[in-house]
Design a protein around this nucleic acid. Sequence first.
DNA 1: TAATTATATTACGTTAACGTAATATACAGA
DNA 2: TCTGTATATTACGTTAACGTAATATAATTA
Lengths: 138, 138
Amino acid sequence: MNTDLITRDKIYTVPELARELGLTERSIRFYESKGLLSPKRAGNTRVFTYKDRARLIIIMRGKRTGTSLAGIKKILDLYDADPKHHKQAKAVLNGIKERITIFEEQREELKIVLDELELIKNNCLKILGKDNDNPSDF
Amino acid sequence: MNTDLITRDKIYTVPELARELGLTERSIRFYESKGLLSPKRAGNTRVFTYKDRARLIIIMRGKRTGTSLAGIKKILDLYDADPKHHKQAKAVLNGIKERITIFEEQREELKIVLDELELIKNNCLKILGKDNDNPSDF
DNA sequence: TAATTATATTACGTTAACGTAATATACAGA
DNA sequence: TCTGTATATTACGTTAACGTAATATAATTA
């Protein structure tokens, strides 16, 4: 239970995070320049906390969903707000609903293309299985 | 049953498709320049068939999933191949499997972010519902 | 103190996916 | 034949998301 705290107190530099997460230093600094990250500084060196690292992981997942950095920034803002303040909670709620709708629609579109690709795939399999003149491939 | 054939024989121009599908003429011509479409010509005017229109719809769906034009082109190529030729069928099969994997992973990522957003949303709802000092909003 | 090594800061380059004129061409109507 | 109107063709501009030096700065190490 204390090791957990130790872990969360760990700090990271740009090259460390780049290596660990598999992205370039340039990208990390670029994300900061776009306001997606706000690391502290030790002199002129950036110091990232556990939370910053978590944000980076959210950014990377956002990218894998095909979301733009602008969109990811909005999502990160939703994480940031303090829901104890009603004003913020309400704003967050609206933003969240919007995002959920967007992502659900995107998931639906993916389902549609996946179903179509499955059709083509099965058609290929049927043809390859039925009249098979090259069994050596199996 | 004949009306269907009539429908499929219909031809379209760039401005027609742009209006009908809600995209710009520029985009359609751009897609052609990238090899995603290959309309015939009547003089210097492009003539799109029902099939071309179907391709455009696939392109648009691809965009909504966050797929690049290069990726969409590959998918369209899968639709194009003639599975009766074993060579092509096998190639298509490999391409399809790749794409299916990509899209399934993307769908999974979307599921993850959706679940997280739901958590935040429910947290907001709980707080807004529990200590509500502004009931006039309901 | 000099030379490395690490991190940061311009700043120009690049690819994708179009937007936006400006110009050309062709065909229809007055 | 002149004038629109429609489509097409350069071709330059733009935004996003970085890549890629080149240079500066700071902390180490020899």
